[in-house]
Design a protein around this nucleic acid. Structure first.
Length: 889
RNA sequence: GCCCGAGUGGUGGAAUGGUAGACACGACGGAUUCAAAAUCCGUUGCCGCAAGGCGUGCCGGUUCAAGUCCGGCCUCGGGUACCA
């Protein structure tokens, strides 16, 4: 009997697809278009299982949509700028461009064997001047439209290497290479005015019906619309020009509980004070230590410095509050100053306790509750509480009611106004790095910042210093050190001027690539008729880690491109449907060195030893040494070795399950091994089969083996059917076809709803049915061909092979998706479980159309029900037709 | 710290508020084989001989009925604006 030989099958069908150019996307009037896009990869050099999972899911959708009569666009590109290329150049010489292009070549070669339905003619790389030149054109249009501006912003500064560090390059507050304590420093940088769109970016989330609710919620929280009160405290003993401190609060109802005012170390008043006061300067310097991340700032120890300045409480001018500089107050949000109400805010409570400030409640859980609080009292804003120091109105009200009342009261009394603020900050795009898209502007002493002329685009990244290579091992941006690249005439006045050396954040590159795919070679960023036809992306698929930043920036870019005429109004929200997949994880195998530090081992170097339900992991090298592998060793000896690892765990291998695959932890599984051992269809089938796509999946070798066995089984069934007697009658044709139609229905539903794992379970079940079937040739042939079609989005090569084996015309990629016959889906009799008091006691077989009354009668007469009731009279009988009976006693 | 998720047998997981554990792995038993691999058939949540009882991270609630809904926790994961 011939065997399933994926290597040969897969090469043959990939060639067939390529020869007939089946995946090339061309505009067409006769079919509805469908644009499916997976988040494009960073070219790290090796594809990993996460890529395989991501692109296989997209491929299933693309192939399914093709089969259901759509004109499908399914492109692929490379998110090719970014830090890792520069890090590689820094670590081992070489050039970021060479490293990146080599990686693209390698990864493409690794992706090709997966048999993805990609239109490779649209391939793009963001590091190619053909792409980033158009991005520069977009930037200039945005600049002209007032969507870009410059301002100061803080960066991580390494005082030893004298460079800006990315957050990732800051480890425990220190520079990753120098080990120096990082400082926060201000630089003038370019910004996109994303905050102007806050209201729309928030409101439009409502219309994204096919986005995961959790992503919309995360984005909404990130944009962070809040209503609050902005008002000013009058100061006492403050320097000139600071007779007022503006604060913003979302809890004006707690104003009467204010016990201090806090200002950011970057607040103008704090900066003024530090000029003349060494203690303030020292404190502010302390606050500026450490990285810029919100996480670092929020989890740092809360520090305050009493400036000696006082402010008057607006409703009790005899009540003076101290003004502290506090390290947890961000200049970027609100006014950079707050009032602290320790009674109703955990952070303020901690601060007040530390600096011995009063804790004054404004509301309590009840009228007679003790006003002395042992901890901050922070109920939900919707809970009714008793206001012992409230503003107008009832004393019993919810926080939300009280906030509205407080704003109204303050406005009436001339203390500030109610304002709406957003948490969303403008998007800083300047990067002081080489491997990115140059910002196309020139700095002229006379004209200031001047945009480069469009005819001079692209502003290309210089490959080297002119005659010598860049030295990437020197910290800092090599563009700053180029002898001539910066020297250009001013585009406005022609005098000698300096080119901007900052490059763009790589998030800019990934914010419009979906639009570029509609016309990837055009000499404008987009082409109107192509964009109008192909946009929007009908299904976008990618990792949940992009839920906020990438997706928000891409939504902003669609709006900015609409404003500047590069995208139609209909592309305002560019992604109609979004699916966020989980990560592929893998166990980490580690032993410890003498200092207890982990040593990471490759999965291939580790062996799992099992006996019964117990198991232990050991290093193969160690097993070798102990004679475990010697041929004459019996099972008892092997078990004794295995158990010895349990007794001496220090030599056994520790297992950390479900860790994100990471090169440094040696737990990355190379999909190429799976493909070369079992074929692409097995790899594809496996990554789809076990876990729901939105959840993380742990890669295990045994699962791949099972997937391969299954595909072999299907192939063997196909082979067997081919040998059958064409004329002989069989038994159970009807049952087989019924099962087939149910499977069509279930698999279609599964694919439509991203329930790939459930769809595959149904395919397993149907395969078992077919394998055992004694039906005649005709029915079995119909069943195997339908099975091939249903599997074709997941295992396209095998499907094509079965199709051809059964003598079908043409390619299965061109075959229309099977339709379930509704009449075949209904059952005549059904099984109904009977519960007594919610516990299942029996089940009965009844005709599907039996009335409630008859079902109830049957249920009550059931021997097990009678026994359980033990003579008690049932109080109520609930019959849910077609589902269940519950007898309440 | 803050925002968002997830938690179900030995394992991955299934289950429009309606029989918890589909499907698969592993394990065990059997067929086939000189033997093995491969393949095929069967058993398999836990406790119990059985009857039965217990079971979806923990505590509480709503409901005739809760893995699913609500409240409070715990643990793990993602994001936290310069990783992509």
């Amino acid at each position: 009997m011939p065997r399933y030989t994926p290597a040969e099958i897969e090469a043959r069908w990939q060639q067939a697809w390529e020869e007939s150019d089946v995946f090339k996307a061309v505009r067409s009037a006769d079919k509805p278009k469908y644009y499916v896009l997976e988040m494009f990869p960073y070219p790290s050099g090796r594809i990993h299982m996460g890529h395989v999972r991501n692109y296989t899911m997209g491929d299933v959708i693309a192939r399914y949509k093709m089969a259901t009569g759509h004109n499908v666009l399914h492109p692929m590109g490379w998110d090719a700028f970014g830090m890792p290329a520069e890090n590689a150049a820094m670590a081992s010489g070489g050039h970021p461009a060479d490293w990146t292009y080599n990686n693209i070549r390698d990864m493409k070669a690794q992706m090709k064997p997966l048999g993805l339905s990609i239109d490779w003619s649209r391939e793009l790389a963001t590091c190619h001047p053909g792409y980033y030149g158009q991005q520069q054109a977009l930037f200039l249009d945005f600049l002209e439209a007032g969507l870009v501006y410059r301002k100061n912003a803080v960066v991580n500064w390494d005082p030893v290497d004298m460079t800006v560090l990315a957050n990732e390059q800051v480890e425990n507050g220190r520079g990753w290479r120098s080990g120096a304590l990082v400082e926060r420093r201000e630089l003038t940088q370019w910004f996109f005015k994303i905050s102007d769109q806050s209201e729309d970016l928030l409101a439009a989330l409502d219309g994204l019906d096919n986005w995961p609710a959790k992503v919309k919620l995360m984005q909404a929280n990130w944009i962070g619309k809040s209503r609050g009160l902005q008002f000013a405290f009058s100061t006492v003993d403050a320097p000139d020009g600071h007779d007022k401190i503006e604060v913003y609060t979302t809890r004006p109802d707690t104003l009467l509980g204010a016990s201090f005012v806090g200002i950011s170390p970057d607040h103008p008043l704090a900066k003024l004070l530090e000029r003349d006061n060494d203690d303030v300067a020292a404190f502010n310097a302390e606050c500026r230590k450490g990285g810029t991340t919100e996480e670092a700032i929020e989890t740092a120890e809360k520090l305050g410095f009493d400036t000696g300045i006082r402010v008057r409480h607006p409703f009790d001018t005899s009540h003076e509050l101290p003004v502290y500089i506090a390290n947890f107050i961000l200049m970027d949000y609100g006014t950079g100053a707050i009032f602290g109400c320790p009674a109703h805010d955990e952070r303020d409570f901690e601060f007040a306790t530390k600096y011995e400030l009063p804790i004054i409640s404004t509301y309590l859980p009840s009228e007679d509750a003790d006003e002395t609080l042992a901890e901050a009292y922070v109920p939900a804003k919707t809970d009714k509480v008793f206001y012992n120091r409230g503003f107008a109105g009832d004393q019993w009200q919810t926080g939300n009611e009280a906030i509205d009342a407080a704003i109204a009261f303050c406005e009436e009394n001339g203390v500030g106004q109610g304002v709406t603020k957003f948490r969303l900050r403008d998007w800083g795009l300047s990067r002081q790095r080489y491997w990115g898209c140059p910002i196309p502007v020139v700095h002229c002493d006379d004209c200031g910042v001047v945009p480069e002329k469009k005819e001079n685009l692209p502003v290309e990244l210089p490959y080297d210093n002119g005659n010598a290579p860049f030295d990437f091992s020197v910290p800092g941006n090599p563009l700053e050190r180029h002898p001539t690249w910066r020297d250009v005439p001013c585009p406005a006045c022609g005098k000698p001027a300096k080119r901007e050396t900052d490059t763009m954040d790589t998030f800019v590159d990934s914010s419009w690539y979906y639009a570029r795919f509609t016309a990837p070679r055009a000499d404008t960023p987009t082409v109107a008729e192509e964009a109008a036809y192909w946009m929007n992306v009908d299904q976008y698929i990618g990792g949940i880690e992009h839920a906020i930043l990438h997706l928000l920036y891409a939504r902003f870019f669609a709006r900015a491109m609409e404003i500047t005429g590069h995208l139609p109004k209909s592309a305002h929200e560019p992604f109609d449907a979004l699916f966020t997949q989980g990560m592929v994880t893998h166990a980490i195998y580690q032993t410890r060195d003498d200092n207890g530090r982990p040593i990471y081992h490759y999965p291939n170097d580790v062996e799992k030893l099992s006996w019964g339900d117990d198991s232990v992991y050991a290093l193969k090298a160690d097993l070798e040494q102990k004679g475990y592998y010697k041929e004459d060793q019996d099972e008892a000896f092997r078990n004794s070795i295995a158990k010895s690892y349990v007794n001496f765990p220090e030599v056994a291998v520790e297992v950390v399950p479900s860790a994100k695959m990471s090169k440094s932890k040696n737990n990355v599984v190379d999909p190429l091994n799976i493909i070369s051992n079992y074929g692409a269809d097995t790899a594809r089938w496996f990554v789809l089969s076990d876990s729901p796509p939105e959840r993380d999946v742990e890669w295990t070798a045994s699962g791949a083996e099972a997937a391969f066995k299954h595909l072999s089984r299907v192939w063997n069934i196909c082979d067997r059917i081919g040998e059958m007697d064409r004329e002989a009658a069989g038994q159970g044709d009807e049952d087989l076809l019924k099962a087939m139609h149910k499977t069509i229905h279930d698999v279609t539903m599964g694919v439509e709803s991203f329930g790939f794992n459930a769809a595959i379970a149904k395919l397993y079940a149907f395969t078992a049915t077919l394998q055992k079937s004694k039906a005649g040739y005709k029915a079995q042939r119909e069943a195997i061909m339908t099975l091939a079609q249903l599997m074709s989005p997941m295992t396209p090569h095998l499907a094509e092979d079965i199709w051809a084996h059964q003598g079908a015309e043409g390619l299965i990629v061109h075959a229309p998706w099977p339709k379930a016959d509704e009449a075949m889906l209904v059952d005549d009799t059904i099984t109904m479980p009977i519960q007594v008091n919610g516990k299942r006691r029996a089940e009965i077989q009844v005709p599907a159309d039996m009335t409630k009354e008859e079902v109830e009668k049957l249920a009550l007469a059931h021997e097990a029900v009678v026994r359980t009731l033990a003579g008690a009279e049932p109080k109520k009988v609930i019959v849910v037709p077609g589902k269940i009976v519950n007898v309440v006693a």
